[in-house]
Amino acid sequence: MAEVLTDSGQRKYHLINLNVNGDTRTLAVKANALLVNVLRDQLDLTGTKKGCELGDCGSCTVLIDGKPVNSCLVLAVEAEGHEITTIEGVSHNDKLDGLQESFLENAAVQCGYCTPGMILAGKALLTHNPHPSEKEVREAISGNLCRCTGYVNIVKAILAVAEKTAPEEGEQA
């Protein structure tokens, strides 16, 4: 259990080690601090967006151990001991991930507010299912609301990445 510190106002802070995008950071957070706020306010990872704060829109999607979750419904103290990936961890140095490139090529970005969550939801899908059907793509992003695109080009962008990667041995394309 993480160390608990108490400040002069008798507020309790938990000292936690948070592994975000491969780096471990030690942070003092209150028990009621939500992961989305800690990422944005303490780590300045503002690519994780707040859209509804109730798990309805998916804007705050991050990957925890590779799985997409709504970081507005996760306590920061609960995230300790897990690997967290935010949109800032998807590209490597200045090189975009194939899915990010595909979003640009397929005009899948408009206002861009849902984009980080969409890309992470898409990444998680393609990691465990490199050649999804269109239905599977739609299902995988159905927890991410977009108001600009009607999802048309987002679905296309995710499928385009799947088409570019060769099917693995034994896998039905």
Binding site: I87, L96, F103, L104, A107, G112
Partner: peptide, 13 residues
Amino acid sequence: KRIDGKAKVTGQA
């Protein structure tokens, strides 16, 4: 491609 695309897909926007 959108002039603001890269900033948006990387979370830098």
